[in-house]
């Protein structure tokens, strides 16, 4: 489902990108951008786990997509095997978040639609919304399992060590 906030193209807000000098090498820029996107994505994790505010899942998913776009473009800056391993994890994050977000968007849409129907007609759509809520709870399970796995394997530290490494340690301290 389409779920992205409309970003004003007159005010491009990307983590760290404005700090980049286009004269620097791609490798240096790639490490900085991927590190910044990754930290931004992970900053939404606790909110996504909590699940009360649906925007955390949305923000984490969108940032994971931006991160993947950067990784797709900059893949040649990194060793192939570990790159692929990390890429797969990010893809899994996008996928599991996507399943939850799609249901959030559908529930919100049908909740808006229900007000436009007659009282009698509303019953069916309330049933549909209840069904989708149940599916959402089911869709959250793989997401939570993935988070647990990422935490148990110290994925965050490993990812940053590989992509950011010693080159941009000053960035990690920001």
């Amino acid at each position: 489902m389409q779920s992205e906030k409309i970003i004003s193209t007159h005010d491009i807000k990307e983590p760290g990108i404005k700090r980049i000098s286009p004269d620097e090498t791609l490798e240096v820029c790639a490490r900085r951008i991927i590190g910044d996107y990754f930290r931004k994505m992970m900053s939404y994790k606790e909110g996504a786990k909590d699940g009360t505010d649906i925007e955390f899942v949305h923000d984490m998913r969108v940032t994971s997509r931006r991160l993947r776009a950067a990784m797709d473009n900059f893949a040649d800056c990194f060793r192939e095997k570990p790159f692929k391993k990390h890429y797969k994890k990010i893809k899994a994050i996008t996928r599991t978040m996507g399943a939850v977000r799609d249901l959030d968007v559908l529930i919100a849409r049908f909740q808006r639609e229900v007000d436009t129907l007659s009282e009698v007609e509303q019953t069916d759509i309330h049933g549909l919304i209840a069904h989708l809520r149940h599916e959402r709870e089911e869709a959250r399970k793989p997401m939570l399992t993935l988070f647990t796995e990422l935490e148990a394997t110290d994925f965050e530290t490993e990812f940053l060590a590989f992509f950011v490494g010693a080159v941009c340690n000053s960035d990690t301290e920001r």
């Binding site: 286009p22 090498t25 791609l26 797709d72 900059f74 893949a75 040649d76």
Partner: peptide, 15 residues
């Protein structure tokens, strides 16, 4: 996504 070819990590971001 299509595989990007010709990327030069040691050359500038601009290039």
């Amino acid at each position: 996504a299509h595989k990007i070819i010709g990327v030069a990590p040691g050359r500038s971001y601009h290039e």
